[in-house]
Amino acid sequence: MQRTGILLVNLGTPDSAEVADVKKYLKQFLLDERVIDIPAFNRNLLVRGIIVPFRSPKTSALYKKIWREDGSPLLYYSLLQQQMLQEKLGDTYHVELAMRYQNPSIQAGLASLRDKLVKEIIVIPLFPQYASASTGSVMQLVMELVSKWATIPPIRMVNSFHDNPLMIAAFAENARIHGPENYDHVLFSFHGLPERQLLKCDHTGTYCLKSDDCCETLNDVNKFCYSAQGHDTA
């Protein structure tokens, strides 16, 4: 029986909370040209010469405060998500987990699906809203890796799921636990991006940040804009 392969991809985590592993993680993460989208020389100087040496000890200390006895919290819950999805989908699917940075790697996840002889691969970056620095980076690496395969199976990539009813229902259910009706306002907070990365999503150069309300409604121009998708989710 041929199965469909699913590759869940989360952001990443150090292999341990120790400074050496945090340094490896931060280097791989911040040297990604889609994350810090400045010229390579400047990016290397900034990351290798300033950010990693000075930030790693502080970040290591913070990781140690949340680190579980069985490892990274993000990896623990991501593996649990993989297991639950596998149980939900059954034997007609094979679900693998990967991290964009560090382990388990995307290369290992793709190789495992190839070895399972799946009939197609569905790549699902676990970021509801599209951003070049997250989903775009995952897609680029997947394409680079499979381009080296002699036989490339059908591959589908989920660009975003910011408006998926099941995702929104899950968020709403989590919010209800805290009694939002008892508050005057509910604030939605999303991860920030530099404005230059938002501008790159507007290939026309005529819409993004041209007005104060450019992100409030999705349209053909801003449909891949992280900010516009965030507004749509909220």
Rank of each mutant, 00 (worst) to 15 (best):
N222G: 01
K24I: 11
S211M: 04
H94T: 13
A234M: 09
S72A: 08
M143K: 15
Y207Q: 09
P57F: 05
I36Y: 01
A131P: 00
Y207A: 08
Y207R: 07
S105H: 09
H203M: 09
V35A: 02
P165A: 03
Y25C: 07
E120M: 04
M99D: 05
T135C: 11
Q102K: 10
Q197W: 03
G109Q: 01
P153T: 12
H231R: 08
H203V: 13
H178R: 11
L79N: 13
Q102R: 15
K24W: 05
N222W: 01
V118R: 09
A108S: 14
G5N: 03
L113C: 09
H178C: 04
P104E: 10
A175P: 06
W149Y: 13
A169S: 11
S137N: 12
Y226I: 06
F188C: 14
Q2I: 12
K64I: 07
F171Q: 06
M99H: 09
L7H: 10
K148F: 00
R55N: 02
D70M: 04
P154R: 07
L126R: 02
L110G: 12
G179L: 09
R43F: 01
L126V: 02
D32W: 01
S147W: 04
A131F: 02
F224K: 15
L80A: 14
Q86S: 13
E96M: 00
S160V: 00
G230M: 08
A172Q: 14
V47N: 09
C215V: 01
L30H: 00
D213Y: 03
Y207W: 14
V47D: 06
I168F: 05
A169K: 14
N164S: 13
S60G: 11
H94R: 14
V221L: 12
G90C: 11
A61P: 02
A170L: 14
T206I: 09
Y93V: 04
L193E: 11
S56T: 04
F54R: 11
C201M: 15
T135S: 13
P39L: 04
H231W: 11
Q2H: 10
S189T: 11
Y25I: 03
A40H: 10
D212Y: 00
L89F: 12
D32H: 06
S105K: 05
P194H: 11
T206P: 07
S134W: 00
Q83Y: 05
S227V: 13
T204A: 13
P165G: 05
N222F: 05
V47S: 07
V138L: 02
F188Y: 14
R68Q: 13
D184N: 12
Q81K: 11
L209N: 14
P73C: 02
